[in-house]
Design a protein around this nucleic acid. Structure first.
Lengths: 172, 172
DNA sequence: TCTGAAATAAGGTTCCC
DNA sequence: GGGAACCTTATTTCAGA
């Protein structure tokens, strides 16, 4: 069990992860608490930095941005300068909703959102492949989303024997 | 320009995408509107389904879930039955925060969140590779996140010449 | 038909027990 | 942790352009 949050915190977090418009009164009732202590717990989790922010989730399909692709990117030469240059260009590519460096054969994994295949092709040609920074690209077009959540799996946090600083360690 | 949303809607959406706790009064001021029409626009976007929900974003690192991996999965035989079987098992894997079917050599792309490498290894052995459904797995461990947003690139929605039903089409 | 101002209702926030 | 007062904000209604 985490020393940071207890069972009640976890229940609260799980609820507000899914729906940030729940009132404190609603939340309190659902976790079996009165509004004040429930509010104080939320406040504490904000102060701790566990709660980062509340955001509004939009529907890309409704907005005509239903074409999504996972793109793995390999730089011709992954030097520090080239990494920085690539990431600087990224600033001007609104299509990229996610970009991280990864281990393995490729350097980056991106998630790209466009209107359709044609717009994606434009993105590839005019942006991603426009410089000689990139030596290889692999596109995995998303056909169907089985699961897509902004929620963190809190249940994993409360699990037994975390590798924490247990002074006299038991088994791992 | 989209027939669904106008410039003002786009500005509102961009603001609440980043911060759902902005008050209507704040929003109104920032987009140069009074609270009432601003509120009505938001209401309309909710009714249209453009706004799906408000969620709370947590910090995985603070919760001790800072180890994230992109996992591409290939099924031994991607039959309908096997796809369904795989997706049914997924229900019991809280580590998977994202899963979609993709084009290319693999069948699925997952995003997995665990405490550390050890926990990820457990996930692989006890869950993902436990059945004979899966014939191949490639793990891309996330080293650093360059960009990670829940926001949709609204700017792309308002772009000129969308492939909409323009009765007498101009040039593309 | 759409905008803005004011009234109302609901919820967040604080204080005290 | 719980209860109640307080104060901010969402929501509705109404008058005007």
């Amino acid at each position: 069990m985490s020393d940071l949050i207890d069972e009640l915190d976890a229940r609260i977090l799980n609820l507000i992860q899914e729906d940030a418009s729940l009132s404190v009164a609603d939340l309190a009732e659902r976790v079996g608490l009165s509004p004040s202590p429930c509010w104080r717990r939320i406040k504490r989790l904000e102060d701790l930095g566990v709660i980062l922010k509340r955001v509004t989730v939009l529907d890309p399909d409704r907005l005509g941005l239903g074409f999504e692709v996972y793109v793995s990117v390999k730089l011709s030469l992954p030097s520090r300068a080239n990494l920085e240059a690539f990431e600087a260009r990224l600033e001007n590519w609104p299509e990229v909703v996610s970009c991280q460096t990864v281990t393995g054969h490729e350097d980056y994994m991106l998630r790209v959102m466009t209107r359709d295949m044609h717009a994606y092709d434009d993105f590839l040609r005019d942006k991603l492949l426009a410089s000689d920074l990139v030596s290889g690209v692999e596109s995995r077009i998303i056909m169907r989303s089985v699961r897509q959540t902004t929620a963190v799996p809190i249940s994993l946090v409360l699990d037994k024997d975390a590798p924490k600083e247990t002074k006299a360690a038991g088994g791992k």
